[in-house]
Design a protein around this nucleic acid. Structure first.
Lengths: 215, 215
DNA sequence: GCAAGTACTGTATATTTATACAGTGTTCAT
DNA sequence: ATGAACACTGTATAAATATACAGTACTTGC
């Protein structure tokens, strides 16, 4: 897969092309490259030709600014599916999908994040510092997890409606459900929780004493 | 923020420019646009000039292919921090960060995803269908959650090393820790779990009976 | 009804940009 | 020591590309 190594001068040209495109959004001309590198444009040209030959970029003849980076597509994070025991996983064939946040949190463009605090959603396996994704455009329905403002205070609860009564149920039997009238204006559904993400490393290291007691 | 509306012809040119750049990675020439639209290149030019005036794109005079899209930066998901009770949240000032997966899962480029299955990590609040992010380049240390291959089977456990003995501890007292020798080659640490994401909506709706019993 | 904007065509022409060809030194393996 | 790849310069020239100017016709607000 890897191609012939580039010489220093070639690498310099390639790097400059990259920077130029990054900065200007359009590929450079030979003259521009030549000026930047303080060399003759024919020197640059021959480098571009070899860079093309070495497949480090695409040089299209007779086209102004005919330089294209063979850009590695912003690859998502590969996801290995449920892997059956015993098979070598992490092979190309086991990639069942590719992670792109927008695809995963498939909601509208208004999705926002919110940190969880407290243990009221413990039974739903949410803990302090988890990051929730909330979509204000998804309709709250029975059984969905919602973010609601109750007298100005944001809270995460299960949503359950019965006629004109809305019950906000915490996933922790320690706490009691909140009951409100549907038209009560001290109460407002902000959105529906469509996803969560937890950054495990940093935090979990501190918490790791926990499992020692448990096991 | 929104600029003057574009006419049909202008929109057509803008769309074509977008498609062209998408496909070719370099901006089109006037002649190319003209040919695609089957009009004279001066027609295209005047459209580009007005598109620039209306700030729909950038048209740079005297430069070949001097067209730039004013690309809306791929905006991340805004994150509202811990919001103090009573304050109006979802205001600009409350955005503590912006979610970009690569920043959050700050690891190397080799991070991959893996679905959780089973309840062996229940006490760590992981459940079936959660998506784990695993970084093979992060070093396994005591207290970190790791993905290991034990006799070919991938498993998620807490990592604990004592001299040459490695203990893989499940976060569920129902299961027993696995003990292996450090140099045992039927055993291999694949990587460290650096994050997880859970798509709540679809799945959770089906599971929502659960909370009814609980509350 | 008329100025002003839109949407074009057509023919030149200027400018930008790429190519061609002829050189001059290097370095480096055989 | 010699051919071959590398890294250049310099001068022309060809080709690609943008601009200028002069038109025509249609719509739209006033």
């Amino acid at each position: 897969m890897t191609n012939k190594p580039l010489t220093k001068a070639q690498q310099k040209v390639l790097d400059l092309v990259k920077t130029y495109i990054e900065e200007n959004n359009i590929p450079p001309t030979l003259a521009e490259l030549a000026e930047s590198l303080k060399v003759n444009l024919n020197a640059v040209r021959s480098h571009l030709l070899t860079l093309d030959r070495k497949k480090a970029l695409k040089y299209i003849p007779n086209i102004s600014r005919g330089i294209e980076l063979l850009q590695v597509k912003p690859k998502g994070i590969p996801i290995y599916g449920y892997v059956p025991a015993g098979t070598p996983f992490m092979s190309q064939e086991n990639i069942v999908d590719t992670f792109e946040i927008k695809k995963y949190i498939s909601g509208s463009d208004d999705v926002f994040g919110l940190y969880v605090r407290g243990d009221s959603m413990k039974d739903a396996h949410l803990e302090t510092d988890d990051l929730l994704f909330v979509d204000p455009k998804v309709e709250a329905r029975n059984g969905r997890m919602v973010v609601a403002l109750v007298e100005g205070e944001p809270t995460v609860k299960w949503y359950e409606r019965d006629g004109n009564t809305i019950r906000l149920v915490p996933a922790n039997s320690k706490y009691k459900p909140i009951e409100v009238s549907r038209h009560d204006d001290r109460f407002k559904i902000v959105g529906v929780v469509v996803g969560m993400i937890r950054s495990i490393d940093k935090k979990r290291i501190d918490d790791s004493v926990k499992y020692k007691k448990a096991s």
